[in-house]
Structures are given as structure tokens and as C-alpha cells.
């Protein structure tokens, strides 16, 4: 690693002031499981690293009336094990438990998973399904950004110089709804999603699909909504035929590339399979037999 300056910020104001004055190459440090390998292999050369783990706002994990607040520096292991998260947001708990190994999850954070902006990030699809937003603070003050709009390209976010992710806020899950996330990996643990699909299904009292959200991972420059597939489902009674039609539509909407982990064709095939399975899983979680 090249030499750099390190500062452990004690407050949001202190972190923002350090990040702002050091310029765009400065990097916040939470779990470090992405940043330190980047620095070790000379893919990142921050002159200044600002440790944000001691900032109280970034350490909070609480479930109150208006939803779930996940501080940007809370380790994934804490989120996956939090009783309110496992009870009310099982898909979020599950996706946090998929990242890396036990050792990685002791350090890695949901904030880092989002800010690293990998289209394969496992924690992001469920957040988008639930309409989560990111709370950001910076030199110009505080702003809120839907998680869906947070990443703009692989490795790129909407964060400007001096801006810092404070927390991700997940609204309460809608009544009569369920979310599930499924991914495909050659290994169960310690692997990166070849493709992942999350779905939210909200049903009307009569058992019709009132609202559908389908979010695909690792098949585009960012996580992608399968909006046409959502449209296939909404307002309809869920049947096996309808679910297959939606899954096919999602496969048509993804924008995969071929790389070292899979070909574009294989990824497209996986979207179809995973979309179908996650929709069935979300329906089943609401007691709807398809």
C-alpha cells in the first residue's frame, strides 16, 4: 500500500470537513473489505482515509415507527442478526448474510455494499424493492436519494466531493406484501452473485397482485428494475402461467454482459429462472398458492 493520511472522525461535521478539504480522491473507510484490497492492489490511491466507524449516526441500527434505520457503518453481521430485521425484513437479513464470509461480515457494511456500486451487490435489490432511501450529508447539507437512483454506473454513485452516506432508511413493509431475494453462485459462501433477482409482491384483499417490484443484480451497469415484468403482474390474479410470463419478460429486460463469471446468454437465462422462483417465494410468504 502507498502511504496515506488517516483520521478517525468523531462526528459527521468532522468527516465532511476532512473529505471536502482533501478533495475527490479522499475515501471514507467503514469495514474496509473493499477499500483495503483496492489500495493494496493500487487501484485506489487516496491521500486521506477518513474512518467513519466512530460517528454515532453511522453506527445506529434501529427499527422505529417510520421504518428501519441502518447506519452506513453497521456491520452486515449485526443487520443479519437483528431481531427486528429478521422478523420484519427477512429478505434484507438474508441478503446481508450472503455477503462474503463470517470474517467479512464482521467488518463489511451495508453502506459500503451500496457505495462500492457493484451491480452484483446482494444487499441492494431488496432495498430497492422496499423503496429504501439513502441519507447523505455533505458540504451543502443533507439530502435524501432513493437507493434505486444511488448508483449510476459500475463503481459510480451520485455522491459528490465531501459527501458521505449516513444511513439507509427502509420504509415499513406494506401490508399483505412479501419480499424475497435469490441469487445464483457456484459456491454457497464466499462468492459473488453471477445473477440475482429480488421481488416484492403486494396483494389486494382479494388476492390480486396490487403492486409488483422486480429488481435484477449483475445483469446491467447498475441494479435494474424489470418494469415490463412488473406490469405483467399488477392487477392480475397470480397463476403459474402469469409468473412464467413475467419471468420471461424480465429476462428480456436485463442488459447482461459476458465476463469471467458467466456469459451474457447464461445470465439472461438465470434471470428468467430466478425471477420465476423469487415471485413464487414472495407469493408463498403471503400464503398465496400459485
Amino acid at each position: 500500500m502507498k502511504p496515506f493520511e488517516y483520521v478517525a472522525a468523531g462526528s459527521l461535521a468532522e468527516a465532511v470537513s476532512h473529505l471536502d478539504s482533501a478533495g475527490p480522491a479522499a475515501r471514507p473507510l467503514a469495514g474496509g473489505t473493499d477499500l483495503l484490497p483496492q489500495m493494496r492492489y493500487f487501484r485506489a490511491h487516496p491521500p486521506l482515509v477518513v474512518d467513519v466507524k466512530r460517528i454515532p449516526e453511522l453506527r445506529q441500527l434501529s427499527c422505529v415507527g417510520e421504518g428501519l434505520h441502518i447506519g452506513a457503518a453497521v456491520p452486515l453481521a449485526d443487520i443479519a442478526a437483528h431481531p427486528d430485521v429478521t422478523r420484519l425484513y427477512p429478505a434484507i437479513a438474508y441478503s446481508c448474510s450472503l455477503v462474503g464470509s463470517v470474517q467479512i461480515r464482521s467488518r463489511a457494511t451495508l453502506g459500503g455494499n451500496l457505495c462500492n456500486a457493484a451491480p452484483s451487490a446482494d444487499t441492494v435489490p431488496g432495498l430497492i424493492c422496499l423503496g429504501a432511501h439513502a441519507v447523505v450529508t455533505g458540504p451543502a447539507g443533507r439530502r435524501e436519494i432513493p437507493v434505486e437512483e444511488f448508483n449510476t454506473d459500475p463503481g459510480k454513485t451520485v455522491l459528490g466531493t465531501g459527501e458521505l452516506l449516513v444511513e439507509v432508511v427502509v420504509p415499513p413493509p406494506p401490508d399483505r406484501s412479501a419480499v424475497s431475494y435469490l441469487r445464483f453462485t457456484p459456491r454457497q459462501e464466499m462468492d459473488i452473485a453471477v445473477t440475482g433477482v429480488a421481488s416484492l409482491l403486494k396483494f389486494s384483499e382479494g388476492g390480486m397482485v396490487y403492486q409488483a417490484r422486480i429488481v435484477m443484480a449483475a445483469v446491467g451497469p447498475t441494479h435494474l428494475r424489470a418494469r415490463r415484468a412488473e406490469g405483467v403482474l399488477e392487477g392480475q390474479r397470480p397463476t403459474a402461467e402469469l409468473v412464467s410470463r413475467a419471468a420471461e419478460e424480465a429476462a428480456g429486460e436485463c442488459q447482461p454482459i459476458s465476463d469471467v463469471r458467466a456469459s451474457a446468454d447464461y445470465r439472461r437465462h438465470l434471470v428468467g429462472v430466478l425471477a420465476g422462483r423469487t415471485l413464487l417465494k414472495s407469493a408463498e410468504a403471503q400464503g398465496i398458492r400459485v
Binding site: A8, G32, L36, P37, D51, K53, I104, S106, R107
Partner: peptide
Amino acid sequence: VNSCLVLAVE
């Protein structure tokens, strides 16, 4: 934790 992914100063 993986101690190779933690800075001593942290």
C-alpha cells in the same frame, strides 16, 4: 475478522 483487511490504526 481477517486481520489483513484491518488497519492497525483502526
